[in-house]
Amino acid sequence: MSRESILKAVKANKPDALALPNIDLSVFDEDINLVDRFKENIEFVGGRLLELNGLDHLDTEIKRLYPEAQKIVSCTKQSGLGTVSVSKETDPHTLEDIDLAIIKGSIAVAENGAVWVSDEDMFVRALPFITNDLILVVPKNAVYLHMHEVFEVISKREKTFGTFISGPSKTADIEQCLVVGAHGAISLTVVLY
């Protein structure tokens, strides 16, 4: 292994120590309506925002939006629509024909329309990617302005896996034409309640 020789070469070749900058977050402050900004961004990235007052009608709304969905995984007690049950032990390959996954998102980011989804909320890591359509359910008081705030909020989590999801999967690799639905979910709805 080249570990020692690499580290030795780095040590010999690196410049004199430069200090770690102190980041003054006040330069990124903006006095805006967080939900409005989030909505603007999630629509920009091809997602849909559904604002609800409480979750009493969540399932009705989901059925209205995805009337064709048969194979549904619900990773949250907030929805009773699940038809396929999933646990940490589920082989992800068995999820290839899932129509819809409903997952809790713990944080929404106003500046970029992203939602942070953690390992424990998705049960199986492949789920939010392999499902045809995806719904993320996020409380309204969990919308933050920017990524600096978000990393502060999630800093104490158990660090296993997590992902920021901003919109449905997409590509523009054929002549720069935007096509929604590459390898991951082909639609994304974020429910803010």
């Binding site: 990235v45 896996f161 997590g162 901003s166 449905p168």
Partner: peptide, 12 residues
């Protein structure tokens, strides 16, 4: 884009 669609953070 304001951020890529997926920014996945692998720890374990």
């Amino acid at each position: 884009q304001p951020i890529t669609t997926y920014s996945s953070y692998f720890n374990k």
